[in-house]
Structure formats: C-alpha cells, structure tokens
Design a protein around this nucleic acid. Structure first.
Length: 504
RNA sequence: GGGCCGCUAGCUCAAUGGUAGAGCAAGGGACUUUUAAUCCCUAGGUUCAGAGUUCGAGCCUCUGGCGGCUCACCA
C-alpha cells in the first residue's frame, strides 16, 4: 500500500520537476489569458451563434479541472469541469504544436489538474460542442489520483472526512449544497420582506438557556470566566423585543453536547424569530407562508418529494391539539391522568415502558414521539402543550395546565417549535424556579436561572410570538436526504488520531 | 452507551478455510473526431490493527479502531 502510493507520488513529483525544468510553473499565480466563458456560457454562446450562422467562429478561454482524457495518437479529447458544468476540449497536435501536445497534454497533465484552454468552439463529428484548443496552460497540478470516474466516491466515511473529494467527484453532492444555499436565501427573502431584521447574538454565553440540552463549556482566560456555547438564542432575541426591535430573527449555530445520529450533529443551524404583538396563531401562518415560499422558490410549486412521500406545503396545514393527536394515535387521553404516576400506569397498560424518573411532561412528550410523530407525514401543527415542558410559553387563558405552544412536523420529523411567549416576569420567575424543582439538582438538563433575562422582562416585554426551527432538517427535506450528515459540509466525525494514553 | 452490519489495490467491487482477482485510475506502446474510446504490455496488496483456532485464515473466534443503520438519550 505504501509502496504503490509512494510509487505514484514519485511519478507525480517527478512530473512537477520535469515541468519546472521545461520552464512550466505547475502552480502559476495567474492565467496567461483571462477566462472568457464558463463551460455553460461557452455552450450557450455557441448555440446562439449557430442559430444565426452555420459555422460560427467563436474563440473562448476556458478554465477547469480536467476529469477525463482520451488520447488518439495525434489528436486527443478531454473534459474540463468548472462551476457551471463540463465542456470538451479537442486538441490537435498539428495545431497546438508538437511540444505542447507530446509533453504537456499527453504526458505531464494528469486527471485532476486545473487547465486553461483557449480555442475555437466547434462541433465534433459526434455533435458535441467542444473547444478546439490553440493554447493550453496548466493552472494547478493535482498530486492525488481522482476517484473512479464512473462510480464516483461511495465510501461514506471518506465522503464525510474528505468532503472536497466528494464534492469534486459527485456532482449531485454539489447540488445538495447549492440547494441548501438557495433555501437560506429564500428564508431570508421571506423574513426581510416581512420587515424582520437579522441580528447576531452571543455564541459564548455566561448562562445557557432557551432549550433543554447539555452545553459545551469553555473558559475565558483573561476574564477568568466559565462560558458556554449557546444551546439556543431564545433568551437573547427576546431581550431585543424589550429594547424595541419588533421583528427580529437570527440564523446561526447552536451547540449541544449530546448524542450524534442521522438527525443530530453537535453543532447545527437554527433559525429563530420573534415578533411583537403576535401570538402563536400568527406564527403558524408565518411558518406556512415561509415554507410555501421556500418551496415555490426552489421547485416552482408547493409539493416536494421526500423519501418517496409526496408532501404538500401549501397552506393551510393540518392542526391538531396534542391531546387529540395522542388520543387518536395511542388511545391515551392524558388529561384523564393528572399525575405522572397515574399517566405512567396508563401507559404501562398499553405496553409502553415509561422511565420511572420521568415527570408528567416528559411522559406526554414520549407518547408524542412514539405514537404520533411517525404518522405526521404531511405538514402538521400540534398545539396546546403541557406547562411542565414549556417554561417559556404563556399559559392558555382559563387553563393553567396548558400553554399556547405548537410544534410542527413534516415527514415524521419534528421540525420546529413555537409559542406565544411568556412575558410576565413574575410568572416567568415562578416557572423557572419550578423547573429547578422538577429537574433534580443532578439532572444535567437543569438550567440555572437567568436573572438578567428576568430583569429585562421586568422592564416590560411586548406580547409576542416566537419560533425556532432546525435549518439542517429543512435542508434534508428540500434535498430529499435522510441523514443530517448529507446536508452538512463537514459533519462531525470521531477523530482518527489517537493519543497513546487514550488506548490505556 | 446497547444491538446489527461493514472495512480487500488510489476508486468501484470479486474471491467453498487451500497460490488474493477484475474494471477504472497509474506507467510503457499503437491510433488525426473520441466521449465509460479501443487494442497490446507493465506495475500496483501488512485484506483496518492485534491475538487465537487450524497443516493452512481475507473468510472462523476474541479484543480493539473507524464507519453505517438502529435502539436508548435528545422541554
């Protein structure tokens, strides 16, 4: 293995030396001739000219990575790939010169090299629009072999660890990330158009909050201060409503020190927005409108296909209360069981095996994810959540056990979460303190009380509706990928390097 | 963290417990319109690592590594 790779390396390094001895710089700083067209532009220009003239003369300069080469004696073909696509170049020894043909094109260029080609656009015998090269320049030498030109790169581990190779070898992977970028554009376009402003709040936080998760911790040396990587932006964004910013959103990275799976990466991208003078009903309408807008921008319609399911994002979506949904799919009416013990017993009777330590809210949540969630293929809002698992949401009028909250589900996945935000500082303090009791002192999900957040709320926070959604899961949805790793450019993998003492 | 599966040439994949192979890529040669070019020749391997069983291990067993799926966890 090392022998063969050494041998290959030797050959490529020898080529580098030979190029230099011929006066050819393998990594030139600039192009001999500026690039005039991308591959797609050149093909379009030729087709247009051809429509007016049988034998148009168009000279172009193209740049790209050489991904294939077919040598046929005194003539040869190669495909260059750039950001727009591929185009064939056609090289004739009698045209480009014996030296360039025999030394550079035929021998010293390798698949994977970046090349500049200047020439005339022609149609070959088989009809392919090609650049008949008069001039070639090596732009950057590749020292590694390209993956299989037909099968691409399949090994998942290599694809994730060396995403650059995955991207260069598998065009459909590039497409995924282009679609993701367009999705982000469409989301911002919708929110900006509705008068939201995009803000940035601290990633390093002295107190974490806004979600239930274990944080990553770090330390500021000079300040001698413990800091946490944020698990949510919620508490900071809502402070901005106090300050008079009425519609704010943030798109950024959250960090959660928890399990890694096809749905979870330690760092992931979140969208949150908060809107003054809105309640969760307004938020539901916005979510519908935003995702319909995104689908429209990406596909031209509101129907998408995900893992074989046709999913219609056109508003209005189905709305179900949590109680009705759980009753419908599991047969349990949790409102009949006011304590955790009673509810757990009812669940056991139906073959569920709830954890003894769970509080009632967690039991209900478990019913939701086990019985309801997998069935929610079409977009669905589940509304009216128990107060125990919603410390930041406002109580429903006339029902102290329930809050104005919804989660929305698509394709059997929980996609996001929203409430009419709690803005009563006294109620908020009581709820946070209650959470402290509900989660034992040793529960890692237990949160410290954020006094500054309570202070902010005491200054007066307008009534408002807030929303958070996982951007990566939306990207999975819109690119039809079943694993979060396929929509993250560099998903987290265990490090390959091992220190000696880690073996002990 | 548990269970199941995988790891063989640069890539994609073969190989009843009995001499590790193919295609592409690479190196040499032929070829002036190919496109997964074709044809001839050549080289390329600590089969993830280590231990064990066996006359003999890519294959069986154990331990470990990495990955995938899944379960658990994941207001």
């Amino acid at each position: 293995m090392t022998d063969s790779s050494n041998e290959r390396d030797q050959i490529r390094l020898a080529k580098l030396e030979e190029l230099r001895s011929l006066g050819i710089e393998p990594y030139p700083a600039r192009l001999d001739v500026p690039r005039s067209h991308t591959a797609a532009e050149a093909i379009a220009a030729f087709e247009q000219a051809e429509a007016q003239d049988n034998a148009p003369k168009l000279t172009v300069t193209l740049a790209g990575r050489m991904l294939s080469r077919r040598l046929m004696g005194k003539v040869g073909f190669a495909h260059l790939e750039d950001g727009s696509g591929r185009i064939q170049i056609f090289v004739r020894k009698d045209e480009i010169g014996e030296e360039v043909y025999d030394q550079l094109f035929k021998r010293l260029l390798d698949l994977g090299d970046f090349v500049l080609a200047t020439g005339t656009l022609v149609r070959t015998k088989t009809g392919e629009i090609s650049c008949q090269a008069q001039q070639l320049q090596l732009l950057a030498k590749s020292l590694e072999p390209m993956p299989d030109k037909w099968h691409g790169l399949k090994d998942t581990e290599t694809r994730y660890r060396r995403r650059y190779v995955d991207l260069l070898a598998n065009p459909e992977v590039r497409e995924v990330f282009i679609t993701r970028a367009r999705m982000m554009q469409a989301i911002r376009q919708y929110l900006d158009g509705e008068g939201f402003i995009e803000v940035e709040t601290p990633v390093l936080q002295p107190i974490y909050g806004g979600a239930a998760a274990r944080p990553f911790t770090t330390y500021h040396n000079q300040l001698k201060q413990d800091l946490y990587l944020r698990i949510s932006f919620e508490l900071y964004l809502k402070r901005l409503l106090v300050g008079g910013l009425e519609r704010v959103y943030e798109i950024g990275r959250d960090f959660r020190n928890e399990g890694v799976s096809f749905k979870h990466n330690p760092e992931f991208t979140q969208l949150e927005w908060y809107e003054a003078y809105a309640d969760y009903n307004v938020v539901m309408e916005r979510v519908e409108a935003m995702l319909a807008h995104v689908a429209q921008r990406l596909t031209g319609g509101t129907t998408i296909t995900y893992q074989g399911h046709e999913i219609n994002l056109a508003p209005p979506w189905q709305r179900l209360t949590l109680r009705d949904a759980i009753l419908h799919y599991s047969g349990v009416d949790y409102t009949q069981y006011p304590t955790a013990a009673e509810l757990a017993e009812a669940m056991r009777l139906r073959g569920h095996r709830p954890e003894n330590t769970s509080n009632r809210g967690k039991l209900i949540d478990s019913l939701l994810s086990t019985y309801v969630e997998p069935n929610l293929i079409q977009p669905t809002f589940i509304t009216e959540y128990p107060i125990e698992i919603s410390p930041l949401a406002k109580k429903k009028e006339g029902d102290p056990t329930t809050v104005e909250r919804f989660e929305y589900f698509i394709a059997g996945m929980e996609m996001g979460n929203a409430f009419t935000e709690l803005n009563d500082p006294l109620d908020q303090r009581a709820r946070m303190e209650w959470m402290q009791q509900l989660y034992g002192a040793d529960d890692e999900e237990r949160h410290p009380v954020d006094e500054d957040y309570l202070l902010a709320m005491s200054y007066g926070m307008p009534p408002n509706g807030g929303f958070g959604t996982g951007i990566d899961r939306l990207a999975m949805l819109f690119t039809d990928n079943s694993s979060i790793r396929d929509v993250l450019l560099f998903p987290h993998l265990r490090s390959l390097e091992r220190t000696d003492d880690s073996e002990a």
